[in-house]
Design a binder for these strands. Structure first.
Lengths: 196, 196
DNA sequence: CGCGGGTTTGATGATGCTCAAGCCCGGTGG
DNA sequence: CCACCGGGCTTGAGCATCATCAAACCCGCG
């Protein structure tokens, strides 16, 4: 298996592993190829993986008390994905994680991640930095969610995640942005009309 | 100075420092007492501290392109506060951080935090865990922001942050929840009416 | 006593939702 | 090769939620 994508990612975050550490990490990772539209974590179960996407695309979403779906997160190649809350505390998940396309995933289990952190403490730094960055991104997302009208949220989204926005159905984008698919459709047609 | 509140916090997160490490951390921390309604970080400047609240209460907020304020975060005793995005990358902040009450803050600078992480790598774990938890909390917040109507958001807020909600003006809560103060007022009076 | 910040109340209007219908298009089976 | 099906997208009407603006109120404080 070629995990270079991951090791590149680690390097890019300023963490430099020696050969032994690379070996260690490789030995602790599991590999899985998943067909499209497969649920790999469902609400109520404990999320058993902390995964890194080698290829493909996934979404995580929760279903609220009114039965409405809310996409919380997308992941593509070179992104991590898990229900951290569930994974870390080994409690039942509130999220569903589903492949959008056929996906190749490598992942830690709770134990293997802890072992790896124990034996290669450099990775503490790597994960600390990852979480810092996620936190910043989440912050930013919250801010645009609170402050921008729907049309601008959409424009920000396609600007920021251009590739992604061309790979996934509009309803997913709408759900991610917290607006109805119908409304997104109207926004888009309005944008086209403006463009003339 | 008595930094026990911080060291307790570190212990509660499963990180156990020896005396030397406690010494080290203490030596790297700065202390500051701040009067109420003081801006200690403003948009455009680099946020120079990564702070832990010993007493008092603060808020961080951003001002959007329409001039509207959005509170992104509150901090009280035993909470950390900073503009992480700015602090970490040493780039200009988009947030303002202001004391709501008179506040005692201990804080790292960028350098002192890096030194401390270098010399006491156990703290990598502590911060990694903190960020994990923040991320989970942020996730949760995003979800309630997207899925709940205003009245429920308010009820969740006062349930979750009971103490805080009794210490701060309603307008702050409204701003945090992303609704107008007038609307919050109406929600409250509606709730009272229902209660009979 | 008057000032001012925070809160309340009401009228009006915008934003975005729901529901329902129709359309477009790729996939499947006859 | 065509007919049909179904999922995703579009469009429109009517409605709920929430914002804005303006005025009044309450109360602690100088």
């Amino acid at each position: 298996m070629n995990y270079e994508l991951l090791f590149d990612n680690i390097k890019r975050h300023g963490v430099f592993l020696n050969n032994e550490e690379v070996e260690l990490v490789t030995s602790k990772l599991h590999y899985r190829k998943i067909k499209r539209k497969q649920l790999i974590c469902s609400a109520g179960e404990v999320c058993q993986f902390y995964g890194f996407v080698l290829s493909g695309c996934l979404r995580s979403y929760s279903i609220d008390e009114y039965g409405a779906e809310h996409i919380t997160y997308f992941a593509m190649e070179d992104w991590w994905i898990s229900d951290i809350a569930s994974f870390i505390s080994q409690t039942p998940s509130h999220l569903n994680i589903e492949t959008i396309e056929e996906t190749e995933l490598i992942y830690f289990t709770k134990e293997s991640r802890e072992q790896v952190l124990e034996e290669a403490p450099k990775l503490e730094k790597y994960f600390r930095i990852l979480f810092e960055k996620s936190l910043v991104a989440n912050h930013q997302r919250l801010l645009t969610t609170l402050s921008l009208p729907a049309a601008e949220k959409y424009l920000e989204f396609i600007k920021k995640y251009k590739k992604l926005s061309e790979r996934i159905p509009q309803t997913h984008i709408a759900s991610f942005l917290g607006i109805s698919p119908e409304h997104l459709s109207k926004i888009r047609s309005e944008l086209v009309r403006r463009r003339d």
